[in-house]
Design a binder for these strands. Sequence first.
DNA 1: GAGCAATACTTGACAAGTAAAGTATCACGA
DNA 2: TCGTGATACTTTACTTGTCAAGTATTGCTC
Lengths: 157, 157
Amino acid sequence: MATRSIADEIKQTRPFRSRSQEAAMALLRTANVLRRRVDALVAAEGITSQQYNVLRILRGAKAPLPTMEIAERMIDQTPGITRHVNNLEERGLIRREAWAGDRRQVLCQITPAGLRVLERLDAPMDALDDAFAAQLTPEQTDHLIEALDLIRSTPDS
Amino acid sequence: MATRSIADEIKQTRPFRSRSQEAAMALLRTANVLRRRVDALVAAEGITSQQYNVLRILRGAKAPLPTMEIAERMIDQTPGITRHVNNLEERGLIRREAWAGDRRQVLCQITPAGLRVLERLDAPMDALDDAFAAQLTPEQTDHLIEALDLIRSTPDS
DNA sequence: GAGCAATACTTGACAAGTAAAGTATCACGA
DNA sequence: TCGTGATACTTTACTTGTCAAGTATTGCTC
């Protein structure tokens, strides 16, 4: 499949006012494509990509995490996390417990069942990431990461 | 604000298994940040970023477009478009009409009121795009666009 | 130590994305 | 011309993301 520029894809008569705009559009569209692939992949285990993220964060953390810590590490707002966590708890993939130190907080940790789900997804997920990055040279991948990190550092308006 | 790498942001103990994975994560997170900024901006006109996209596509097209054409140019599936279009029509920002040539199709076009909404958003939207791209050199922006175009060309699994 | 703001969620309400099924229309072959 | 399949939506149902408001704690200040 040949590379299609964004301008081709959206068939705009008046394509882009600036390279900035083209970059922004490309970023949004590309991320959407990637997200859908991830969704399709984790659906095999009956979870969504956001639930998968929660599990991965909990696995990555050595200790149980309070709900808000999870929210901070994800891109989501807190209310969304509460629901993901509810859902995951119902399925036994994570466990929640009150913590005496600060009773406002609820600590979450991944269960062995949750770990098994992640393990089953590790290989296909790696393959997916690699398939995308395979379009780029290692240098391009590095530059891409660098550029994205810079963009995220844009100060609030 | 200093640039924070993805690894910093999510505070993973076990950061990334590969650069591919880091790139994928950076892509998803960065796009999310951008999308929220866009949402916040267009909310001033009482529309969502997807409705804004519909309006922009209709402005970009010289002629009225059938619903499915809009769906194709966006990332959305058709059912979503129907709703956006319903909503925009209720507010008088677009107009829908049956077309004698193929009565299955419904042609949509932007109204003067819709054009005015877009015009009010043009300047702030340009400013937003530029603010993001301002973190990059023009060469970096070009490379970013190129890399994203390549990634989107990844064949299906 | 009494109040008052801040924190850490949780809940409710609503827009948006997605899949699946339904409806109307068209196109094409027998 | 009479199906038969394809096309272009539309509707329905369900999940997710987000905001606003509510609740339970905590911490800080006077």
